[in-house]
């Protein structure tokens, strides 16, 4: 691990010294030994602040949209999930691939439950790969959709009760949206003030509208990084919603994973005359 960390610092220093990039987004230490935080390294000296350990949990790709970096090319440390997030954002035309330099970091899983069902531990896209690739783990579709299958086993009334309870906890902090690489609109629908639109108040109806709309907005584009669920302060099982949509897509069109390339069309967002219509 420390070898890779020093290689990472070296790479960042070189990139910044040579002027290839103006900023490197990576992980840095915090006051807590078991936590890291995303940092924006803008000078070669600061490259020493970068760390690479089991606590590098946060997804970094979304930070490229934060306007915190000086203008110019940007370097991002990418694990498998981050690399798919980069593909997601590039595919959604929110950033150009040529304006990014990706430092690939094969990852053996971090301090997060989602890593147990990770199917891409090696970055799917990178400009430089630090350390050799790690072996991928076999994740069965049953494991991937375990939470969804459990909910599908409930009766509709039980499901409704379950989600009622869950949604009632939501405080509209929008952390799930802010962390999600698929939520990359310039102005989110939930932030807009329009009559009859998403209400800002915290109540049963508006919480449901937010939760369901969010799920449908990201459903077929979700890269399953699990950030939404990880950052939720109220512990909502948010991934169960998006994975339900992914599971349905899987059942209809076969195995489907997003963000493996930056050009694949969205399965639910394309008009094609050869689309299935046997449900009509």
């Amino acid at each position: 691990m420390s070898d890779i960390q020093s290689a990472l610092r070296e790479t960042a220093k070189k990139l910044l010294t040579e002027g290839t990039v103006t900023c490197v987004i990576g992980w840095g230490e915090t006051r807590f030994p078991d936590k890291t935080t995303p940092i924006f390294v803008k000078t070669p000296e600061d490259a020493e602040k970068l760390v690479w350990n089991a606590h590098c949990v946060c997804g970094l790709a979304k930070y490229m949209l934060d306007n915190r970096c000086p203008e110019g090319k940007l370097a991002i440390c990418v694990r498998g999930c981050d690399s798919r997030a980069v593909n997601r954002i590039v595919e959604d035309k929110q950033y150009k691939r040529e304006d990014l330099y990706l430092i690939g970091l094969p990852c053996e899983g971090k301090d997060a439950p989602i890593c147990a069902t990770c199917t891409h531990r090696n970055p799917v896209v990178y400009d430089v790969l630090l350390g050799g690739p790690v072996p991928e783990i076999e994740v069965s579709q049953e494991d991937r959709f375990q939470a969804v299958t459990a909910l599908e086993g409930l009766t509709p009334a039980e499901q409704y009760d379950y989600w009622q309870k869950q949604f009632s906890k939501c405080i509209h902090c929008y952390a799930c949206r802010n962390a999600c690489p698929a939520c990359n609109c310039t102005e989110c629908y939930a932030d807009q003030y329009r009559v009859g639109w998403q209400g800002k108040q915290i109540d049963k109806a508006e919480n449901q509208v937010y939760g369901l709309t969010r799920a449908f907005h990201v459903g077929d584009r979700c890269i399953e990084c699990g950030e939404c669920e990880r950052v939720c302060p109220m512990g909502l099982p948010i991934m169960s919603q998006t994975r339900k949509i992914l599971k349905d897509i899987n059942d209809l069109w076969g195995n489907y994973e997003c963000g493996l390339t930056d050009s694949r069309p969205h399965i639910l967002g394309e008009f094609d005359l050869s689309d299935r219509d046997d449900f009509m």
Binding site: D92, K93, Q94, N184, T186, E187, P265, H266, G269, F271
Partner: peptide
């Protein structure tokens, strides 16, 4: 144009 984020989703689904 103020609200549009240029994702191009509409481009693909327009028949």
């Amino acid at each position: 144009q103020q609200k549009c984020c240029g994702c191009g989703f509409c481009v693909n689904c327009c028949p």
